[in-house]
């Protein structure tokens, strides 16, 4: 007898499971989470805190907020950030002041830990939400964050 009851119970459990899947089959449109990437590129918006890559925002006068204090370089665990800096004479005071020549960012080595942005005293670097980083040659992943000819905004001190 247990042979037949086993068959009965077996079919019953299978049908219980199939009721769940069947329910979703009928209400297929309800509660789907699938995103049609890359077709939805125009509408796809990442969260504002999403860690895509590190960028340095510049304002309309081509000025950034980086003083070249190198705190991000020290905070980085993998040597992703390299700062090439120089000293320039400030005209008003006549004193020498540190300024950045190049803020080099190796995206290929970055682990998106966020310690550099946490360490930055002047909020010169922020996260960007771009995540499409595939390139044909990995040297293209080495980026210079400050734009050519840019200079530090007046009044930014660390």
């Amino acid at each position: 007898m247990s042979y037949f009851s086993d068959i009965y119970n077996g079919i019953k459990t299978l049908l219980t499971g199939m009721r769940v899947t069947g329910g979703y089959f009928i209400n297929a449109r309800k509660g789907t989470l699938t995103q049609q990437y890359p077709d939805n590129r125009e509408t796809l918006k990442m969260f504002e805190r999403f860690r895509g890559e590190v960028v340095m925002p510049h304002d309309e006068n081509n000025e950034h907020q980086c003083t070249g204090c190198q705190k991000c370089e020290i905070a980085c665990p993998n040597g992703t950030i390299e700062i090439i800096w120089d000293r320039a004479i400030v005209e008003e005071t006549g004193k020498k002041k540190k300024k950045i020549d190049q803020h080099i960012y190796h995206l290929s080595m970055c682990t998106m830990c966020g310690l550099c942005i946490e360490a930055c005293p002047t909020d010169a670097i922020v996260w960007a939400q771009n995540f499409e980083n595939s390139v044909y040659d990995r040297t293209q992943l080495t980026k210079v964050l400050n734009q050519p000819g840019s200079k530090v905004k007046d009044g930014i001190e660390d």
Binding site: M46, R49, R51, M112
Partner: peptide, 20 residues
């Protein structure tokens, strides 16, 4: 992703508290 900025490797804790 909305709170920590990453989905898997979150790194939201720092010694002494939270990053933000």
């Amino acid at each position: 992703e909305e709170t920590c900025g990453a989905r898997l490797t979150m790194n939201y804790n720092i010694p002494g508290g939270l990053m933000f």
